[in-house]
Design a protein around this nucleic acid. Structure first.
Length: 206
DNA sequence: ATACCGATTAACT
DNA sequence: GTTAATCGGTATA
């Protein structure tokens, strides 16, 4: 039985959100809601570097009821609704008053596949389960009521099960859907496992 | 109060 | 490759 270690507060409360973003690739995102446990390995992430990052909701120090969570401690969930339909799950990093966050964009389903299929309204397992940020939340049962939830608690957390991808399997690229961010849209803040089926976008070639 | 828009997805042509 | 769906957040008055 492999041992699973929940990531500690110190993992999240560090300065370099981009680096943390890369480190999250290969970790396991777990939700345990209403006694039902579902999990998946993170294969795609994007870093949002707070006030200095035009693509971030907290750009320029913007602070509203929605983004308030990002100004809290590292190790907190920031969930919001996009396009009125999709719940996007983010991990808040850095300490108080520095609104860094990491969007989880893709997971490879592990435990509770049946439940995830049901939540996603799918009949059979395929690559779209857990592929793309909206689908990640749907599969894991995360929605906006979970914003502000501590990742050190029992409901939602990220763990290290000892597995890791080889450095060469992880690639950096520009973030998705942030064209409005000008030059910040070009920053290589997106990390993904090369050619992995549960990474959004076209299959990457080597 | 009202108006515009989005860290997307799925279903089209 | 293109586009409709859909509604809370944010800005503006």
């Amino acid at each position: 039985m492999h041992r699973i270690k929940k990531l500690p507060r110190t993992f999240y409360e560090r300065e370099d959100v981009v680096n943390i973003s890369r480190e999250l690739i290969g970790k396991v995102l777990v939700t345990e809601l209403d006694g039902v446990r579902t999990s998946g390995r993170i294969v795609e992430t994007e870093a949002y570097a707070g006030h200095g990052d035009k693509a971030s909701h907290a750009y320029g120090g913007r602070r509203t009821a929605r983004t308030e969570v990002m100004y809290g401690r590292g190790g907190t969930a920031y969930v919001y609704l996009c396009y009125g339909i999709h719940h996007l799950f983010n991990v808040v990093t850095h300490g108080r008053d520095t609104p860094h966050a990491i969007l989880i964009r893709g997971i490879e389903p592990m435990e509770g596949v049946e439940v995830m299929l049901e939540r996603s309204g799918k009949k059979v397992f395929d690559r779209t389960l857990g592929r793309g940020p909206g689908n990640v939340s749907k599969a894991l049962g995360i929605d906006t009521v979970h914003t502000g939830t501590s990742l050190l608690g029992a409901e939602i957390y990220i763990a290290d099960d000892g597995f890791s991808f080889a450095p060469g399997e992880i690639e950096a690229s520009a973030r998705i859907g942030v064209d409005y961010a000008g030059k910040d849209a070009l920053l290589p803040y997106r990390f993904s496992v090369k050619g992995h089926a549960h990474v959004s976008g076209k299959p990457s070639r080597t």
